[in-house]
Amino acid sequence: MLEVSAITQIFGGVTALDDVSFAIAKGDITGVIGPNGAGKTTLFNIISGIYSQTSGRVMLEGQNVSGLPPERLAPRGMVRTFQNIELFGGMTVLENVLVGMHTRCSSGFLACALKMPWSVREEARIRREALRWLEFTGISELSDVTSANLSFGKGRLLEIARALAMEPKIILMDEPAAGLNSQETIRLTRLIQSIREMGITVVLVEHDMELVMDICDRIVVLNLGRKLAEGTPREIQDKKEVIAAYLGEDS
C-alpha cells in the first residue's frame, strides 16, 4: 500500500531522518513511535507531501508519489490529520466536511457555481453524505456550530470526519490522542478500529503507548532519525534496544 524507502531529510546541518525504510500493508493499522525528536512528524510531513525529502522515495500503491504536494495526493487517496488540529475556523462543522468533499464534486467549478441541475442533485447527495460522516464520528448534533468554537476533542473528531469524507485509501494521523481526555481517547480508539474495518489503511504517530499497543498491527520505532525496530506490538515490547531507547523511560 505505502512504501517508504531510504528516506533521508537534512535540515541545514541537522539530519532529521537517516535512511528510513518500511512498508505498510493494506488494511493495517501501523504505529510510528519514538522519543521526542525522533523524526516522526518530519516523516509524516514527507509522506503527506508537505516537505520534500532530501533523498529517498515514497510509493503509494506502486506509484512513485515523492514530492507531490498534498493537493495532488488527496485525490490519490492519501489524507492526514494534524497534531494541532487544522480546521477552517470561521466555517461551520458541516461546511468543513463539505470542503473535504470538494475534490469529489465531479461537476466542474462553473457548473457548481451556476447551480446546473446535475450539480444541484450532486450537492444534495454530497450534503447527505457529509452528515453521514458526522454521524459516524459522533458529532452530527454539532453540524451548524462554527468550528472555531469546538472543544479540542470535538475538533479532532471533525478533522477525522473531514478526512474520511475524502474517501481516502490511507489516512495518516499525527498524534490523534494528544490533548484528549481518557474518555475521548477510548472513543477515538473505537473510531480508529471502525475506520480500519471500512478497509482504510491507518498510519499513526502516537505517544499514548496503551493506545498504540492496543490497536496497532505493526509498529515502526524511530530514534534520532533512524529506524530502530519494526514488528508487531509484542515483538516491539520485547526488543531490548527499544526498551532502552524509549519504553525504558517509563518502565
Binding site: M91, V99, G100, T103
Partner: peptide, 16 residues
C-alpha cells in the same frame, strides 16, 4: 472560503 481560513489545510483536503 476554506482557502482563506486555512490555506494549508485546504491544500491537504485536495483544494488547489
Amino acid at each position: 472560503r476554506a482557502c482563506s481560513y486555512n490555506g494549508r489545510a485546504a491544500g491537504l483536503v485536495g483544494i488547489d
